[in-house]
Structure formats: structure tokens, C-alpha cells
Amino acid sequence: MSGDGALAQRLGELFAETFHIEAPAPDTDLLESGLLDSFQFVELLLALERRFGVRLKIDDIELDDLRTLARIARKVAAPQGA
């Protein structure tokens, strides 16, 4: 869990750099707050690939996986295709 926490923090930094916003808290609802829209989602996927070397398979992603940084971190940390 602490691993996920650290990852969520690094994701927050990535978010802040990529979108020029303050890093959201790990449990901020990114969809309701409008911090993540389809444009930013694509940028985020690209940034994840560049920075973390992870490639998320879009077919495996549910809307709820994207709701908070903590959940995105969980998705990034999970073995792909599992």
C-alpha cells in the first residue's frame, strides 16, 4: 500500500508538470473536479509510458480506475493483462 502511495505522489507530480496545475491529492475525484478530460487522458497515457515505461491497455480500463490518482497508481502497479 505504501508503494502505491509513493506512486500516487509521483503521478501527482507528473500530473502537475504535464497539465500546469497543482498536484491533486491522491483521493481527489479527477472526473468530478474536471481535472481529467479526454484530451488530458491521452496526454496522461503518453506521459505514463515515457516516465514509467508502462503501457496501459485501454480495453482493460474502467472509468472508476481513472477516478483518483490513488486508483490510477493501483492500475499502473497491477501486472498488465492480469
Binding site: L31, L36, D37, S38, F41, I58, D59, I61, L63
Partner: peptide, 9 residues
């Protein structure tokens, strides 16, 4: 509208 995040949806 939130489905715009997920083209497969």
C-alpha cells in the same frame, strides 16, 4: 459525457 475518456466504452 464521461465515456469520452474511454473510446472503447
Amino acid at each position: 459525457p464521461e465515456l469520452n475518456l474511454l473510446p472503447h466504452k
